[in-house]
Nucleic acid binder design. Sequence first.
DNA 1: GACATGTATTTGTCAGACAAATAATATCGG
DNA 2: CCGATATTATTTGTCTGACAAATACATGTC
Lengths: 258, 258
Amino acid sequence: MPLTESKPVQEEPIIKSSISKQIADQLRNSIINGRFKTGERLPTEDELANRYGVSRATIREALKRLAAQNLVRSRRGPAGGNFVNQPTHEELAESLSGAATLLVSLGSMDIEEIVDARRVLQGGCLKLAAQHAKPEHVQKVQAALVRQKQAGISDEAFCHADVAFHRALVDAADNSMIRFVMYTTIEALVPITNMVLSYVKDRHEIIAIHERLLSALEQKREDELEIALNQLLDYLMESFRLAQIQHAKHQKPPSGSN
Amino acid sequence: MPLTESKPVQEEPIIKSSISKQIADQLRNSIINGRFKTGERLPTEDELANRYGVSRATIREALKRLAAQNLVRSRRGPAGGNFVNQPTHEELAESLSGAATLLVSLGSMDIEEIVDARRVLQGGCLKLAAQHAKPEHVQKVQAALVRQKQAGISDEAFCHADVAFHRALVDAADNSMIRFVMYTTIEALVPITNMVLSYVKDRHEIIAIHERLLSALEQKREDELEIALNQLLDYLMESFRLAQIQHAKHQKPPSGSN
DNA sequence: GACATGTATTTGTCAGACAAATAATATCGG
DNA sequence: CCGATATTATTTGTCTGACAAATACATGTC
């Protein structure tokens, strides 16, 4: 730290972005480079404000940026402060799927693209699952399917169980990176599944295919898994088209389809 | 707006999270649900502060949370304000890969897992590419490879071209969702590629395999593509192990590699 | 020793102010 | 009338200082 701070002779590189953003980036790097370790408490806001020579408000805006990325958590009180957060897979997956649903809702991603992507990616994923799946993984898939088969559950609950089912399938591949990535594509399909469910009331077909997936996983039959997956996606696509038609009928002529 | 505001009789549900976070979530939902359309300007901070009955600082913290997610952009001046941002694919991919590098740097993702994931996912991706690749896609791959083959370029530039090469390969699949997802896994491998490059100076092998990938793509040979991909990843893994050993010996990591 | 109480610390929020950027408008010279 | 320049108004960016709320820790009372 230079002792003379009043006149930074060094030409400040003409940075256009706001100070709070710069500080956020800087803190972010410090975290990534391990200068602040996970779980550690970083200096108090006052301390940081002094250190960077800015006001606490600015520091706070920087911290909130990081908080939005689940990089820091804050607690009040004497033992409180801002802590480096080790994002759990769930949190990561959450922010990811947030991004995914955003993309979908903004219409910048085509349904067919998503389904194609899932066909390819999940296809590979299931191969891995067939190789790596441990009993507890299979069990989780089974559990999700059982929940889905409960009679009389709401569409919402069914959809929730559907997500759980597919997540469990992905988990069976036993690979963090794949999980990270696949959760996104699963989430991206949720709105469609929802739509399909609310218009095409038939859950039998979905459940039947899910059962095929489960038993193929149990028997570690890669080929069966792929076939079933394709069936499922074909069915979804088809139903989706039907749902769209019905949707168009009941609703106004689709003006804001973008 | 209710006229009587002094005493909200309605029991405010005992929410534990901070107001700024609640407001951020609320705004976020409004954006996703399309109540604020993309590109639109949302009310001024003062206006929002009044509307929510909080101070501007609180509103700003909420907005900064959204800004961190690339959901809003802000501009100063009379025609300025906070605008709903349509995140480009690049921005989205950026935030994704940010999360990915974070996961890697925090050590919650294994190198082998990443490589395995890439084997599986990119394997599927390349199949799609073989089917869908248009001339311009192939050309982009070619261009990236040419850049990589330039003699005397820095490790950094080489690595940059490497990323471009793989991105171009992914683009050849011509699918937004896959792009979105694969960019992440590509980014996740960058630190490793970096390490390999800085310790195992040999670029020939990588280039050779890249050439094989390119020609396989040109000929739309799915099998060749898969073989070459596996070679590349095998080579990376092996080199990475060597690099690790050397790293342990020298102990001093080149600090500013990132 | 157990329990209630106070106290210090730290984040959360507020209020008001000024600085900086910038689009729209007014001003002035031709 | 036109064009370049100066002014102004608006809006975000930052600062300052204050108080509220949560909470770990110490203190005191029984």
